[in-house]
Amino acid sequence: MIALLIVLGLVVILVGWVIGVYNGLVGLRNRVKEAWAQVDVQLKRRFDLIPNLMETVKGYMNHERETLEAVTQARAAVAGAGSMDARMQAEGGLGAALGRLFAVAESYPDLKASTNFLSLQEELASTENKISFARQFYNESVMNMNNKVQMFPGNIVAGIFNFGNEKFFEVDDAAQREAPKVDFSR
C-alpha cells in the first residue's frame, strides 16, 4: 500500500514536471514567433519606404543609374523570394544596396539639402536600426529556446513533443552587417 502510494506520488511529480517543461517550451516558442513578427514588420516597412526614396532621389542622381537599379532589383528579389532562407539572403542584399545608395548620396549636396531627403534618410536609417535591434532580440529569444530544447533533462520532453531548434537570423556578409552609415555631421 505504502509502496503504491510512493509510486503514485512519483508519477504525479513526474507528470507535473513534464507539464511545466512543456508549457515553458510553448511560451518560449511563442516568444520567438512574436520576436520574428517584430523583425518582419520592420522589413516590410523598409520595403515600403523604398519607392518613396527612389522618387525623391531620381531627380538629383541621374548619373547613378546603376546604384538606383541595384536597389530596385534587390527590392524585387525580396518580393520574389520563396523560402525563408532565400528571403533572408535577399533582405541582406537589399540592406547592402541601400547602404551603397546612401554612401553615394554623400557627394550630392543639393540632395543632402533637401528636407524631404533628410527626413527619409532618418526614417530609413532608423528602420535599418530597428531591423537590427529586432533581429538582436529575435536571436536572443531563439538562443533561449534552443538552450531549453537541447539541455538535459528538458530535451527529453522536447523530443517527445517534437520541439525543434529555431533558426537564427544572421547576416553573413561583413559588409551587410554594418547598418548603412548615415552622416549628419557634414
Binding site: E122, N129, F133, A134
Partner: peptide
Amino acid sequence: LPQLRNVVEEMTLAAG
C-alpha cells in the same frame, strides 16, 4: 520629434 520617437522605438524593439 521623429528622431526621438525613432530612438525610443528602436530601444523598445531591442528590449522586447
